[in-house]
Design a binder for these strands. Structure first.
Lengths: 104, 104, 104, 104
DNA sequence: AACGTTGAAATAGTTC
DNA sequence: GAACTATTTCAACGTT
């Protein structure tokens, strides 16, 4: 059975208050971030490039394990075949998945 | 146009650090919020409804009225409504509630 | 455990091709849908309300009733509702949507 | 002013019908895709790996120009500095041990 | 069948 | 106000 049968009212209020408080804090921080960007812009920095830089760094940080897990699975998918030149197929389809990515 | 000189390096470093620190804080809070929802769920609350409740509280009464009036209008036009529906709710929403009765 | 022999290669190729073809079709349709919305917007319709209308029509009456009853309950518990709200709508909605068109 | 003042009713119906028709088609295709996966599974393929393979191919296809644009911007961001060893900073910084969720 | 996980869709916010 | 990006929401999937 679901809550708010009567007693749970206080619980609900508590939940709502906590969440709204946290969201308020989050919004403040978002404001702070915007201010930093604005200040940077005032100092002559290219905000768009700055945002990209930050996002690239974030991805670079998170992506490593992602990539590794992905590669594992990818190899696994290839391994579903015996040992045939299927890798060729996967690789040679539309372009070369040979990493030419100039990793930062 | 762009910054020149060694100072720019320090400035950039500072900007990046500040932003990443703030984003880290923001992510923490987001995690906290998710935890509150999870806890609420564990206590039998309907998370989806909870989210909707929070969002309803966030938008102010006027906007809400407009949004619901528009939906109401469209539903009428589609013949999905016979009498009056949401419209009632939207219209009766101006004053602050202090006493409720009847209903479910 | 896994497929063995050259056949697996052809099978995999076939699977991949079929899926990618289907996903391409799906993407096309998604594009079409977006276009319809864009056109509607160009004709003065409120896209957000339109989307909500579509989604309301999609979920069946029972579910809708439950969802709105739950929200109603929470709103009551939070003292956000005085008289009657969405509940009315939900209650008066028993039959399938798709019937009468006159009415109103 | 927004639509559905009276005349627009037919327009609205037309829009809704078109969208719902397209969404129905989309849903059908999604069903087809699921069937292909199910069939593949029946033939001994690892569905999860298969999904990953498909997604990798999709990304590999789309990402090239993305990556290039990104790299441009990244270099641009770096170029905000004269020619200093800031690249070093950006590069040598990525070892931030902030991991959530361990991958399976 | 509930749970968390993941990927896609939608909304909100930002920039030009 | 249109396009792009980021955040948030929602639905599907395997897992237990």
């Amino acid at each position: 059975m679901n809550k708010t049968g009567g007693v749970a009212q206080d619980q609900l209020r508590s939940i709502v208050e906590r969440i709204e408080r946290l969201e308020e804090e989050k919004a403040e921080i978002a404001r702070d971030i915007r201010e930093v960007y604005a200040e940077a812009k005032g100092n002559g920095f290219d905000v768009k490039a700055l945002r990209k830089l930050i996002s690239v760094r974030k991805i670079d940080a998170n992506e490593r394990k992602e990539q590794e897990a992905m590669l594992d699975l990818y190899m696994h998918a290839m391994g579903m075949l015996d040992g045939t030149p299927l890798g060729e197929y996967a690789k040679g389809q539309d372009s070369q998945p040979e990493q030419e990515q100039a990793a930062a």
